[in-house]
Design a protein around this nucleic acid. Sequence first.
DNA 1: TCAATCTTTTTTCTCGAGATTTTTTCGTCG
DNA 2: CGACGAAAAAATCTCGAGAAAAAAGATTGA
Lengths: 242, 242
Amino acid sequence: MSEATLTSQHAAVEPKTLVEGAYQRLRRDIIEGVHPPGEKLRVEHLKDQYEVGAGTLREALLLLVTDALVVTQGQRGFRVAPISLEDFEDITRTRILLETQALRQSITQGGEDWEAGVVAAFHRLSRAEQKLGDHDTYTQAAAEDWEKRNRSFHDALISASPSRWIRHFQNILYQQSERYRRISLFRKPVPRDVHAEHQALFDAALARDADRATSILTDHILRTLDSVRLMPPDFFAAQLKR
Amino acid sequence: MSEATLTSQHAAVEPKTLVEGAYQRLRRDIIEGVHPPGEKLRVEHLKDQYEVGAGTLREALLLLVTDALVVTQGQRGFRVAPISLEDFEDITRTRILLETQALRQSITQGGEDWEAGVVAAFHRLSRAEQKLGDHDTYTQAAAEDWEKRNRSFHDALISASPSRWIRHFQNILYQQSERYRRISLFRKPVPRDVHAEHQALFDAALARDADRATSILTDHILRTLDSVRLMPPDFFAAQLKR
DNA sequence: TCAATCTTTTTTCTCGAGATTTTTTCGTCG
DNA sequence: CGACGAAAAAATCTCGAGAAAAAAGATTGA
């Protein structure tokens, strides 16, 4: 199967080439804020940092344009995609549009394998949330783990959607919003009672109640908007321009 | 303004670099079917054809991955994205989802400048359709012209949508469906009475009747599906694999 | 002091050649 | 005759250096 058709995205795919390796590491660093929004990405600098040739790094940067994590203009090199509150609102709303549609399709058309995947992902996520609840065992690694499992859960929910394109776009948007979350919340323990939301979402999905599930999902996604809205007003203004 | 943020897409932007030039010509050739779906894109061959270096051509191909017109897998080079009936159905449905949403927003929030743009684009499109109606003046150039103006009209309709992301994704999908149309219809004069549809769409939009407009738009987009469905059954099977 | 112009420095873009990997070819064996 | 495997060919991937462009800095004149 030509599995590489869409969704070159995420996944722990072993990099078969130096370009892919540099691409994955760069993407992680951008999402985690190592390279903050607006930062100039100078090839001559980064090629040493990532231990590849100049041309190779250029190609990795070009691949990141696909994810809209890097922008390029004419003869002026590369730059980390800027962020703004309007952009995040746009991302959130568009994500809701796509993800609710995909969820609806999954609930309608998903089979036993879909159910099994959802159950498994929810279970793993619950365990991670349990860990985060115990303040004794809260660690950086546990938070990273939660991020991964949270995504897996959302992916599992919509995995039965027959639309590759919706899933493709959803991947891009999820990645984008993850960057906003990482940068804004910045390693703050997950605040609101997110487990209850996940539980409700899980119940509605398995009960095949599409209307209820999409409604919960919408609220769920919208709530992440509030966290970002609470950032200091000048937060988005502080973007490196040179 | 950082206009290059999203939508590096289309537009008659003067290529400021060899990579961009090769990218634009390659994209045109893929959409027009010069490089058919599934074709292997060998760098050593193409670099002579497009008169650039190997590295430069590689970068152009990487940019086309953004548009999902080219796929790349690991250590096995580049390939024109394959096509299939399911893919086109997916493209069509996803396009409807995004484009109706954008149209609704435009109708709700569009101002005078939006109206003016729609009126102008519709006028230009009508003239082109008039020309195509006269079978005397039917030419290849006129058909090309119609393609451009048709896209401009659709763009104008949704131009007042505040969502850059929806417009970004819509651009990609429109480009995709254009490739399907070009390959399948293959320079056949636009069959059905498309002008009447455009007229109805135009009227509903300017009357600010969002429900009617989106309904017409949905039918309008769906109808292009029929043309492709009428292709011979083995049409999609004939994809070059080497 | 400020603005404009010229020079220097930095950065991007481009190319060709070498190293790896994949694909094809071809001979050998069961 | 088909299958297996090694050698050859082709293609991809990678790198460093040179050309072109942009940015930074210095100089001059009002």
